[in-house]
């Protein structure tokens, strides 16, 4: 009994935090399974009836298109950014040259930059290049703004690869690119997956650039599409909740499948082992 009494406050706190973090998800999913009538009658009941109608109707109303767009834009951007950041990280972390430190700092400084201070020129540039309101408009800024954190993480990992391996490869006749491609990259698996996950989740949820550079509904990414939904169907709460649940599902699913990797990826450069 004394034992239990001692732990009681701990359990209360743990449960309080559980409700605080978890309840909104419960509310979202529970509401998404209701019909409109049920929602207005009993907005807080956890389970009334389970119907997936809302899910099918939001998918038909354009959510599928948003999904496709988001997948396309974020995957293309992430693959590109991982590759070009790895390329740039190689000389930055493993070669001595005069502007090395300066160049590194210029790249890293991008992490603190408010996106707003680049918004208007990017908007103008996109219009001049005549790619405004296309997927292409998003890919450029997405890549550019993912470069700083990617280089920051990748250079840290690359520095730790022993010089001896590189020297051995060079004696065997490898050029710098050969060393990079055959020696360095194969050893960067964990770092590359960290960078990949970090950027993928951040671009999957990116909003400002999409808001400024995309206007037609059929080209919208998921976050922008959700906001658009809200404007059009603000009365249909269960429908909107179904859309929110669907939109959150991919990241949550990946998280449930490989929790460790996602957590490590999201903590990015902040957690080193």
């Amino acid at each position: 009994m004394i034992f239990l009494a001692k732990k009681f406050p701990l359990y209360v706190l743990a449960l309080f935090l559980l409700v605080f973090t978890g309840y909104p998800f419960l509310y979202m999913v529970a509401t998404s399974l209701k019909t409109q009538e049920e929602f207005f009658k009993a907005p807080f009941s956890i389970i009334t009836s389970i119907s997936f109608d809302n899910y099918f109707s939001v998918l038909e109303m354009g959510l599928t298109q948003y999904f496709v767009n988001s997948i396309l834009v974020s995957v293309i951007s992430v693959v590109t950014v991982v590759f070009i950041s790895a390329l740039a990280s190689y000389p930055l972390s493993r070669m001595r040259f005069r502007l090395n430190r300066t160049l590194f700092l210029i790249f890293i400084a991008g992490m603190m930059l408010p996106i707003h201070s680049t918004l208007i020129p990017t908007f103008m540039l996109t219009q001049k290049m005549e790619i405004y309101d296309t997927m292409l408009a998003l890919i450029g800024p997405y890549i550019a703004f993912s470069i700083p954190i990617s280089i920051f993480i990748l250079t840290q990992f690359m520095q730790e690869i022993p010089q001896a391996l590189e020297d051995a490869a060079k004696i065997d006749g490898c050029t710098h690119f050969g060393v990079f491609w055959r020696v360095i990259l194969p050893m960067m698996g964990p770092a590359l997956s960290t960078v990949f996950i970090y950027n993928l989740i951040h671009l999957w949820t990116e909003f400002i650039f999409a808001l400024v550079l995309i206007t037609s509904p059929e080209k919208m990414t998921l976050p922008l599409g959700l906001q658009n939904f809200y404007g059009e169907f603000s009365v249909n709460v269960p429908g909107l909740m179904a859309a929110l649940t669907l939109a959150s599902l991919p990241v949550l699913l990946v998280y449930f499948i490989s929790q460790e990797k996602v957590v490590k990826g999201l903590a990015g450069g902040a957690v080193k082992e």
């Binding site: 740039a88 930055l92 991008g110 201070s117 208007i120 550019a144 703004f145 280089i151 690119f177």
Partner: peptide, 17 residues
């Protein structure tokens, strides 16, 4: 090695500032 990243970075981050 640096050019691809730097060019995109210059267009969308450095120039806009």
């Amino acid at each position: 090695f640096v050019a691809p990243a730097f060019i995109i970075y210059a267009i969308y981050v450095i120039y806009p500032i």
